[in-house]
Amino acid sequence: MEELVSLRGVTRTVLLPDDQELHILRGVDLTVHSGDHTAVVGRSGCGKSTLLNLLGLLDTPTGGELRFQGTPVEQIRGNARARLRGSSVGFVFQQFNLLPGRSALDNVITPLLYAGPSHFWKRRELAMDMLDRVGLAGRAETFPNMLSGGEQQRVAIARALVRGPRLILADEPTGALDVDTGQAVMALLDTVATESGAALVTITHDVNVAALARASYRLDSGVLTSTEVPLGVSA
């Protein structure tokens, strides 16, 4: 399987106002291949979101090596990185982050506004197809405030997948949902990712969600370790 992202000894440090360094990630090693379904579990503040931002090219490491599709990220600059992110990475956020005032369809269309001509000129069809895949074709013109939490997250999934990304990054995708809805959303995410052949990396503090992944890691105080034993059992 093709290697999508690889982290070798990656560190991320920020300077606090009192000039002290805060080490968020410490020597993280992780490889994500296409088709992988990986979960990273950890408590709040352990560095999960920072790791996700690095994987999604939203941030750069302080140390170590991060490669995206074989290219060191420091070699991919500014707008090229944004374009690569747009074409290869799809984000699903905990709070859905749907754009207010726009219909479900317009929200799914949004990433296509930054795509090339082949996607842009067929944006409505592509977005409708995607909404259909997440079972929301009938609610395409509905605004986010009129959708339930589960429906909003399904719109967010459709939006993340509409450009056919090779890597889907889900940041606490069930964090704002009840247990049943969360499970349904995770099942959908897993199915859609499998169908499209994309890698899925789920960041969560919920061991039950992490247990759905084929590979899982625990992040604790910036240190990433592989969990051999199913998380649901060990927790």
Binding site: G56, L58, G78, N79, A82, R83, R85, G86, S87, F91, N97, L99, T110, P111, L113, Y114, A115, R159, R163
Partner: peptide, 15 residues
Amino acid sequence: REIGIRRSFGATSRR
């Protein structure tokens, strides 16, 4: 927040 979301979907700073 909206600008951040758009950038996460590939909007370049120029865009």
